[in-house]
Nucleic acid binder design. Structure first.
Lengths: 205, 205
DNA sequence: AGATTTATGTGATCATTGATTACTTAATGC
DNA sequence: GCATTAAGTAATCAATGATCACATAAATCT
């Protein structure tokens, strides 16, 4: 029969735990996440996870890093579909940002939570700097226009996620967003460069 | 001498626990909040808090409600200091909103958290509707302009709190915010009414 | 190959926490 | 005064994050 004896070593337990934790967080949110339940789901003893993650915070940080990687993908996809104009590419950043938040609300909240993750973890910084806003912020390069546009897309994301918009966000917002973006684009020097100079070279691969 | 025997009944334990919990949350955040520690701080047995709060979530909801009340005060103060023009009053709403978030980051996050509070609790709704944005939202009255302006102030608040702005938010943002608000004000019908029709009658008392 | 060292998982155990229950004590109403 | 109800206590439970000594397998060295 196919009752193959379970080997003592798992193979890649770190990844398995991370995947299981991500699966849970994406569906249920991080509040109900338990390291023990994760270990159990991967058929491993309760304390095994601690061999690979110093503590819960460390696991949460790894998940947030993955979240930024996924968000970067969403943005890149959106940029790939966008027109060639600078403005179109810039808009694609904001659209990808909000789109990701709507698709992965639990991950999104975790990525911007305080206390639950370690904002200085190298793996986290490495992934988050794939997001144009973080690139500029990391360089101490945030113009007022950057802050306004980032604030706008971030706030729309959070409020939509928190159900304060009755789910009507993605529909009718398009035209007026255009006008708004034009104003913003006229505001700060590094504003329009946001999606260009620092955009991940998704097109060059 | 002044060792007066502690009476069996506390007087107003519910309020005492709530105050202690608020004190902790404002300083440390909700993640490290323990009902037992609260009870201990108020010199009462571990389970006493459950007489007044069904569970932790219920206590968190009460704290969030208090948060909205405080936010409403901040906004009213700001409006009282503002000029008489509609635009000035409207701006005061946004400024008060962000100001409160910067002063009480932990409360602010709790108020907009999901899962940790019960968004339908009557006491919460009663307080949150003192905030103009929630009044409009509750009426199903949110124009696109409302959403954009709310999104902007909310996002700026969250990002500033999460330390993505290097603490440079309140300084140079003033002039450009003006221009932005003008555009927004031209956008949606209920947009300008936001701070007027529904503004708490702080001036009339 | 055989021995040694290192990485990885186990099982037991701890302290803390949210929550419940049976019981005690005081306040309130008749 | 007496019954009823509100409010606090002590004991207890199950779940959790975390740590430790130990077991097991893999990698490395000779």
């Amino acid at each position: 029969m196919n009752k193959q004896k379970k080997p003592y070593h798992h193979g890649d337990l770190r990844q398995a735990i991370l995947d299981e934790a991500l699966r849970h967080v994406r569906k249920e949110g991080i509040d109900s996440l338990s390291l023990r339940a994760c270990s159990k789901a991967v058929q491993v003893s309760p304390g095994a996870a601690f061999r690979h993650f110093k503590d819960k915070r460390s696991l949460a940080t790894a998940m947030a890093a993955k979240g930024f990687a996924l968000m970067a993908e969403t943005i890149e996809d959106r940029q790939a579909q966008a027109g060639p104009s600078e403005m179109a590419k810039f808009r694609a950043v904001g659209e990808g940002y909000v789109l990701f938040a709507l698709r992965e609300p639990n991950l999104f909240r975790l990525m911007f939570s305080k206390g639950q993750i370690d904002p200085n973890a190298p793996e986290l910084r490495e992934q988050s700097k794939k997001i144009p806003m973080f690139t500029a912020s990391g360089k101490g390069n945030l113009s007022t226009g950057d802050m306004l546009s980032w604030g706008l897309v971030h706030g729309l994301s959070e409020l939509a996620i928190a159900d304060h918009f009755d789910g009507t966000l993605p529909e009718d917002i398009d035209g007026k967003l255009d006008a708004l973006i034009k104003v913003m684009a006229a505001m700060g020097p590094s504003f329009r460069a946001l999606s260009l100079e620092n955009s991940p070279d998704a097109a060059s691969g």
